[in-house]
Design a protein around this nucleic acid. Structure first.
Ligand SMILES: [Mn+2]
Ligand SMILES: [Mn+2]
Ligand SMILES: [Mn+2]
Ligand SMILES: [Mn+2]
Lengths: 222, 222
DNA sequence: AACAAAATTTAGACAAAACTAAATTTATTG
DNA sequence: CAATAAATTTAGTTTTGTCTAAATTTTGTT
């Protein structure tokens, strides 16, 4: 199977992540995510095209080919399995794991990943609630909806968060919110779209921005 | 602390390994180990000198500075902790671990390594019997001597092997020899310096080359 | 000590992945 | 529908780490 460089892997993963979020993958978006210049991105896009990993027509949004998606998914699988390992085995907190998993995801060993998967008990979701792709690249979509769109007065369970940034996750720690937490919306404030919620019998106000990145459901996925 | 590239780390580790084996680190030796040309090695040695990591005078053997040794030891520490993890947690055999640890040793995270160390119960030796440097670069030397130099008729314990090559380790698997195995030398054959040994009540002949790379002691280190 | 052989360094080139600045293409809008 | 503005590509550099071929230094041998 095609061997990719570290950079190529990071580009593929970025394009996949945009696709997953439903955002069109434009040069600029990729450049911002990777903190590269658009000129560098142009160069790499040509290279990935030549390798058959993306569909690329200048100025049009970039799409992964099925081979490209397959490779991207295998990197995402590794990322999420390592994140799970860091939390379940090594006692990392969810805001500490992303930068380490960014490195570990590039380790190349089929055996390592299948053994890690087994060791962890074949987890379906990572510590942020994101689905872990199976070895053949299938993934179980998250069942849920943003807390910002949930009804008042109903008991909800947090199943995922849609943001890996340290500041966001530390804030959730501070208000004692994690995957599996129960939440009830007490009130909605029309003025700024913030909501008042009950988390572990403590009432707090969550901004719309925060609430929109917390995915909840009526029962746990796990 | 000084940040090293992947290549720089591999050069430092190679120089350290030669030093550990007592072989003078000449350009050629380093080139062979890393499968690079002597010209490339010359270039890198200049760079490492400028960074204060080696003592380098053209044509003289290369020695690590104390800063260089410190960095090399931290890579060795990571390598050996990961090897231990692969065997103890993921069920790898000792001939499978080296290439994977070669990749994992470059992951940069203090927290990751200290947590891994803790998770493994602060092991003193890796699966090949090599000592694992402490966080401050101290290492507990192996107590033992080569099987080729051991006396006849005495019960011995295997404490280490001085060769990581797959072929060598697979052979040891085949004859059921591992760290902790009991061995008694039954006879020595002067003609080719091979020895007849009893391993788990099976008598076999070991060549001098093999016996010289098996380190034994009168009792286990572990 | 002189000379051949071996080891090492130097010179010059190259590929990968980034950059800046300039040119070009596409999008927006008055 | 021009004409700006924005996005993207192209051209030309740079850095890192490698290579080959040639020059140089050291070592070993008569
Ligand atoms: Mn992550
Ligand atoms: Mn995650
Ligand atoms: Mn090893
Ligand atoms: Mn080892």
């Amino acid at each position: 199977m095609l061997k990719l460089s570290l950079s190529e892997e990071n580009y593929l993963k970025t394009i996949y992540a945009l696709e997953e979020k439903g955002e069109p993958a434009h040069n600029q978006t990729i450049a911002q995510t990777l903190r590269n210049t658009p000129a560098s991105v142009s160069d790499m896009l040509k290279k990935l095209t030549k390798k058959g990993l993306i569909h690329y027509e200048p100025y049009k949004p970039i799409r992964l080919t099925s081979k490209g998606r397959q490779l991207a998914l295998s990197i995402v699988r590794k990322h999420r399995l390592w994140e799970t390992f860091l939390v379940k085995c090594l006692g990392f907190t969810w805001e500490e794991i992303h930068p380490v998993a960014e490195q570990l995801e590039h380790i190349e060993s089929e055996l390592l990943i299948s053994r890690l998967d087994e060791y962890l008990g074949y987890p379906k979701y990572d510590p942020h609630g994101d689905p872990i792709p199976s070895p053949d690249g299938k993934l179980q979509p998250i069942e849920g909806f943003p807390l910002s769109h949930a009804p008042i007065g109903v008991e909800l369970v947090v199943v995922a968060v849609k943001n890996d940034e340290k500041d966001f996750l530390s804030y959730l720690n501070k208000i004692n919110l994690s995957i599996g937490s129960s939440i009830v919306i007490i009130d909605k404030i029309p003025f700024d779209l913030s909501i008042e919620v009950d988390i572990n019998n403590r009432i707090i106000n969550l901004s719309h921005l925060v609430a929109s990145q917390i995915i909840v459901n009526h029962e746990s996925n796990h």
